[in-house]
Design a protein around this nucleic acid. Structure first.
Length: 193
DNA sequence: TGAGTGATTGACT
DNA sequence: GTCAATCACTCAT
């Protein structure tokens, strides 16, 4: 595994969303380190009505307007956190939502945090993976290139990328901005494979 | 100052 | 398949 160049995060957001598949999300917490392979993402562009940034800059979404390579973490539905990777240049508010991971390391710790034994249930949803990886508001605005929470490139097996419409939104729902690894058991919902 | 909304999950029918 | 939980944030008084 190796660190990603910061330039990587300044590529077009849709390209990053697809290239992130197969990369690893790493979190070095005090209890231990957890690692998961990214198997599902969604892209949110600046002119996308489904994006938090669409209404303009607010205290909540200000991280999206910051420079690429940062983590945008937000709390939703009263119970759940979701984690995004900020992309594009400073001032252009775009991001990639990480929707699902395949657990690689620290699985016991994930099980403990989630209170579950089923590996498939640990990270197969945006709210689940944040709990398993212990990602909270504290990581909002943190550096995903060099921080304790970061993304690294790792050797990829061959896989097919599937592109479909996104999940759980109303506005902009018709845009095909969701990417996942075809046939992977850890994607959050069944799609075309 | 208060109502409405949401990039979800888990429990229950 | 349906539905409540639950809270930060936004927007309208």
């Amino acid at each position: 595994m190796r660190k990603l160049n910061k330039k990587f995060f300044e590529r077009p957001t849709l390209e990053i969303a697809s290239r992130l598949l197969g990369c690893c999300l790493i979190h070095e917490a005090e209890e231990g380190t957890t690692v998961g392979r990214i198997v599902e993402t969604e892209a949110y562009l600046w002119n996308d009505p489904a994006s938090h940034s669409f209404i303009g800059k607010t205290p909540r979404n200000s991280v999206m307007f910051d420079e690429a390579g940062k983590a945008y973490v937000y709390f939703i539905y009263g119970n759940h956190y979701c984690v995004n990777l900020v992309t594009n240049k400073k001032g252009v508010a775009e991001a990639v939502l990480i929707r699902a991971l395949e657990p690689i390391c620290g699985i016991e710790l994930m099980k403990k945090r989630r209170g579950l034994d089923d590996v498939r249930q640990l990270c197969n949803g945006p709210g689940k993976l944040t709990q398993a990886m212990k990602i909270t508001n504290e990581q909002n605005g943190s550096d995903l290139v060099n921080g304790k929470l970061r993304i690294e490139y790792c050797e990829k097996e061959k896989f097919n990328i599937v592109c479909t419409t996104r999940i759980g939104i109303v506005k902009g729902a018709e845009l095909p901005h969701r990417f996942f690894i075809s046939g992977n058991r850890f994607v959050s919902r069944r799609g075309i494979s």
